[in-house]
Design a binder for these strands. Structure first.
Lengths: 203, 203
DNA sequence: TGCTTCTTACTTAACGATAAGTCAGTATAC
DNA sequence: GTATACTGACTTATCGTTAAGTAAGAAGCA
């Protein structure tokens, strides 16, 4: 049972930070959910920012490692790009708090992101940039600006995960005889997204 | 000078809500920036939520009208899709607070979005869904799930606008000999995005 | 025109709630 | 008995919101 309270705090913190973002999350709520008192949080973490950092950095490191591994395990730019997209999607699906935390961070201009966290995020993004650039050099891809392809991949994966609730709500207001396509699972989304991205970047 | 304070409040509110989101925005800051006192805000608006609603709904209505008009003014699914994407991009570029406000709303599950606001957002999204469905029916497009194409368009446009700062920061950590592609302007992004999306959905 | 009355557009002051963070003390394990 | 892992009670600051009061001008009437 060593460190069990620390683990409980981290779990509740991940949940609350992802739901409300850094500022709007209250330590009292985290304490209540993890059945500890507020000072217990301060015993384990220097302050609110340190707790947040622990939550964020842990996942950012995991993600960067995962996509690097996935890309390294595939051959050729096409397969590597597909592997990247699907690994990214799978990761967001497994750590479903993480996408929302990232979305909050993005909409806050990374206000609460430490330099180490930014570096880990950069590692994740560099991986796809490298794949795209390699593909262009090898003549397999034809891309005016790889930055755009990167944005399309990353933003679609994250937004899909974070806007589930609001999408369902907004769909309720659709008028007329539009066919509403079924909301895809993350696995399907990643596959379809990979298909579309590959089709759009192929030379 | 009639209603000049009201206008000042709305302007400052748009700026602050986009920067910090609903919860983290303080009425005191809005009051300070617009050179009025806090209760003066309450004279013009029922409460914080009503002020936010005024800010958000105004832009959501403008946007829905703009993209509907753009789509209606173009012929054929291909041209309509391009017109939609470029009109959406241009709008985000003109109202540069708006994308960030939307991003906050998305990362908060639309917690602060009224039913009217959700309906206006739905109108904007229905427009692109209609274009995609028409294209499929006419045999011009071939799309497994139009939802994914919609996500790619909307999320890329919004994220591009909202992650400018953080992208510049993250780019600073890129190691090795990666070529870093230049950050595209919104106009370029919309054009390139339209190219890529069209390429990826064409039958 | 001049006097009263009412409305508009605020201001100053303060309230209750809730936030992050602190500190002195305590139970438990070794 | 000493280090570890806490708890309860607190401080300070800031939040949204309201109550109460007021200067400036318009409206109604003589």
């Amino acid at each position: 049972m060593r460190d069990s309270k620390r683990e409980k705090i981290l779990l509740a913190a991940a949940k609350h930070f992802s739901k409300f973002g850094f500022e709007a999350t209250s330590l009292e709520d985290i304490a209540a959910e993890s059945s500890v008192t507020k000072p217990a949080i301060y015993y384990h973490f220097k302050d609110k920012a340190a707790l947040y950092e622990a939550v964020l950095l842990f996942r950012l490191e995991l993600l960067a490692n995962r996509v690097e591994k996935a890309a390294a395990g595939a051959k050729g730019p096409e397969e590597r790009l597909r592997a990247y997209i699907e690994a990214f999607g799978a990761f967001l699906n497994e750590h479903h708090c993480f996408a929302a935390t990232l979305a909050h961070e993005f909409s806050d201009d990374g206000k609460q992101m430490s330099d180490r966290a930014a570096a880990e995020l950069s590692r994740t993004l560099s991986t796809v940039t490298a794949i795209l650039n390699d593909g262009v050099e090898e003549g397999v891809f034809e891309i005016e600006n790889p930055m755009v392809a990167q944005m399309m991949i990353v933003s679609t994966l994250i937004m899909h995960q974070t806007t589930r609730t609001i999408r369902a709500r907004v769909a309720g207001y659709v008028q007329g005889e539009h066919k509403i396509s079924p909301d895809p699972s993350m696995k399907d989304l990643a596959r379809i997204l990979a298909d579309k991205i590959l089709k759009s970047v192929r030379a």
